[in-house]
Structure formats: C-alpha cells, structure tokens
Amino acid sequence: MKTLFVSYRVTELDRSLAFYTALGYAELGRVEAGGGTRLVILKFPEEPAASLELVHRPGDGPVDVGSGFDHLAIQVEELATTLKTLIAAGLKPEPLQYPGGAHGPKTSWLTDPDSYRIELVERPSGHPDGITAADFD
C-alpha cells in the first residue's frame, strides 16, 4: 500500500488554487462531480503523480478546519530561496526556524486561505528524502 494524496475541502476554489499554485503545485486534472462539486488534482512538477486534491462543495458552506487537523509537511530543497519565491508571489510564510538546532532541519510555516497549516522543511545536507526509520534511531 501507499498514500495516493491528501484531500482538502476548500471554501473558494479559485482562491485556494491560486494559493497552491503560488506554493509551487501544478494542476494535473479536474473533475466536475455534479451538484456544483469540483475536484482539482495537484502535484509538484518534480513529483511523478498527484499529491493534493482540492475539493469544492459550495453547498456545504465555509470550511471549518477544526481541532482535529494539524498540518501538511512539504520538503523543499533550499528553504531560504523558497521563502523568497513565496513572498514574491504574495504569500506570507513565517520566518525561518531551526527546531533541531543549527545542524538540524530548517522549517517555516504557512497558512492557506482556509486556515490549513503547512510546514515547509529543508532537511540537512546528506539526509535522505522524507522521514524514515533512521530518523528515530
């Protein structure tokens, strides 16, 4: 088994699509599901397949993220460069942080239009992609 993608319900599809496109996602496809429901499938250009789905069901009213959702984590190559790009695109990432100390990962946080939190992570040089069992040894 493997995870296919994460799906977020969004209040305003165009606003959310603009946000995630500025973040670096590219649209892979759309589905009109009836009753005004639209799905937009996204991926980062370097990903082989979809990783995020935006679901717009206008009849359900505004999105309430609530207390159960925490965040989406996205790995980036160079966080400082990514932050400059996001700021230039009109997004508002939080300042660079070093939660594991100077030699650990670098992070920054961003909030989408529906209040979903996104953690941007630059792994230390030489660290394999993603989080593996080796991170817990």
Rank of each mutant, 00 (worst) to 15 (best):
R38S: 02
L110F: 05
A73K: 00
D14K: 14
Q75N: 08
G101R: 09
K43E: 07
T111N: 03
V55A: 11
S7V: 07
R38E: 15
P45E: 12
T82S: 12
H103D: 15
Y116S: 07
I74Y: 11
T81R: 14
L4Y: 08
L72T: 12
V65Y: 05
Q75P: 01
T11P: 00
I118F: 01
P93Y: 06
P48H: 07
V121Y: 05
T21H: 05
R117W: 03
K2C: 06
T132A: 02
A133N: 03
A88G: 05
I41T: 10
A18K: 11
L86C: 02
E53Q: 15
R15F: 03
L42D: 09
F136N: 00
L23V: 10
E47L: 14
G101V: 10
I131C: 04
E77V: 14
G100K: 13
T111P: 00
P93V: 14
E46H: 13
I118R: 01
R117L: 05
V10I: 13
D129G: 01
D129A: 13
K43W: 01
D135V: 02
T132Y: 01
V40T: 09
D64S: 14
P48Q: 14
Q75E: 15
S67I: 13
T81H: 09
P128Q: 07
V55Y: 04
K84E: 15
F19K: 00
P58S: 10
E47S: 11
Q75D: 13
V65Q: 10
M1N: 09
F69H: 08
I41R: 11
G126D: 08
I41L: 14
H103W: 02
Q97D: 12
A26Y: 01
V63Q: 13
D64Y: 02
E119M: 01
A26E: 15
R9W: 07
L28K: 11
L54K: 08
E119W: 00
R57K: 14
G126K: 04
G66Y: 08
D60H: 11
D137L: 12
Y98S: 12
F5Y: 15
L72W: 02
P124E: 03
H103M: 12
V63S: 07
R57D: 14
A134G: 04
E94Y: 06
L91P: 03
F69P: 10
D129Y: 06
P95H: 06
G90I: 13
